[in-house]
Amino acid sequence: MTRPFRHPHLLDITSLTTEDVVQILDTAEALFEVSRRPVRKVPTLRGKTVINLFYEASTRTRTSFELAGKRLSADTVNMSTASSSVKKGESLYDTCKTLEAMHPDIVVIRHGASGAPHYVAKNMRCSVVNAGDGMHAHPTQALLDAFTIRRSKGTLAGLKVAICGDVAHSRVARSNARLLRLFGCDVRIAGPRTLVPKHFAEAFDVSVYERLEPALDDADVVMALRIQQERLSQALLPSLREYARTFGLSEDRLAGAKDDAIVMHPGPMNRGVEIDPELADGPRSVVLDQVEAGVAVRMAVLYLLAGDAGAAPTGPRGA
C-alpha cells in the first residue's frame, strides 16, 4: 500500500490502467478482513469527511459506501434528493459550491445524468467518486465484481465472461465490459437486440450474441442484469414472461458453461425474470460475496483517494 494512487477521483474505468485496478483490488484484499473482525473499525481516515450525494434511490450502494467510510473512521454524511434542497430546484453547480464550503474530503455521487460526476469533479476541490451516473459508468460495481471474480478464479486474465440482459440501459455492463477487456477477458454480451445497442460491440470491443447458449458456452463467469418493468412500455420487450423464457438464467441453461462457472448479479434481483430463484440461491451464486466485496472495495477506494496515498485533486476550473 505504499505506491501513491495516481488519480484524484474515481469517475470511470476508462481512466484506469490495469495497474490502477490491481492496486485497488490489492488494497481491498488488505481491508477485507476488517469487516469480519469483532471490532469492525480502523482509524485510517479519522478526521476525514465523506459526503454521499445520491440523486437516485439506492439502498445497497449507499449503505455500502456509508459502511466503508465508517469502518475507516471517516465521518460520513448522506444527502439524498428526497430530503435536500435539490427538490427546491437547486442546480448541481450550487450544490457543489455549497458542499464545498463544508470542506469534505470526498464526495460520492450517484446521478441520473451521464457525466454528472465529471461535472462535480470540475467544480469542487475535493475527490469525487462515481457511484453510478446515468447509463454511463458504475466503476465501484465493476471493481467489486472484479474482486469477487479474482477471489473465485484466482485471476482475471483471459476469462470468458457472459453479461446477459438489459445492456442498453446498464452502467454496470459498461463498466464491467471496460474493466474485463483491460484484462483480456473474452466478454460476451447476450440479449435481445432491443436491449443491446447497435454500436455496443464496437464501442466496447466485445462480442454480442442473440442467444444465451453460445454466449454461455465454456463461460467462467455469468452475470445477469436487472430487467426493469418500464422496458415493456418502451416496446423493448413484450413481456417479462417471454424474457424469462428466452434470456432468463437457470441451472439448465448453464449446462454449456464451465462446471465451476460462477453466477453474478449486481442486485436487486428479479427472481424468476432474469435469474431463476434456485440458481440465485445455489452453489454457483456469488451474489452475497459481491455485496461483501462491495464494502471492501469501497473502503479501498476511499482510502486510496483520501488517505496518505491519495493524489491531490486538481480543484475547480479557474481556481
Binding site: 476508462t14 451521464s114 457525466g115 451516473d133 446515468g134 447509463m135 454511463h136 459508468a137 452502467r171 459498461r174 445497442p197 447497435k198 454500436h199 455496443f200 464496437e202 464501442a203 466496447f204
Partner: peptide, 15 residues
C-alpha cells in the same frame, strides 16, 4: 447522435 461514442458515454441518442 446515436453512435459508438454516445454508446460509450451512456448518452441517449437519435440515429
Amino acid at each position: 447522435h446515436e453512435s459508438p461514442l454516445s454508446t460509450r458515454l451512456g448518452l441517449r441518442g437519435q440515429p
